[in-house]
Amino acid sequence: MEELKKLICISCPQGCTLEVTVEGKTVLKVDGESCKQGIEYAEQEITDPRRMIASTVQVKNGYHPLVPVYTKMPIPKNTIKNVLKELRKVELTAPVALGTVVIKNVLGTGIDVITSRDMPTRTAEQDHFLK
């Protein structure tokens, strides 16, 4: 049975409202998009909704107690909760560089979680300021 679904594209800040005609998990038609990303998004959202996830993990001896991390690619929506749980178990030790893999292939999604900044050690950071 054909069905009309309204989605809001999150590919860019514009946030186009998409009218997607679907049958089961098959996309038949997309209206309202401003670029081809809209069509890709609709297809993805209907068949396999995914999100980028950004959070933090603990870091020992870091200038801050947490280092921010994110999924390199969007992960399946239904794994978010468990990925967050996994991240709570992680503790890195400073110094940590931007792009360090925190969890490889998180929960078998094929996607790595990586750090989004350098995290110097507490002392190194202070020395850095004193130079």
Partner: peptide
């Protein structure tokens, strides 16, 4: 720490840091 930065100038979706 969320994503969404740099889409216009780097054509990449980056976290703030």
């Amino acid at each position: 720490i969320h994503n969404g930065f740099g889409v216009e100038i780097f054509k990449e979706d980056l976290p703030g840091p």
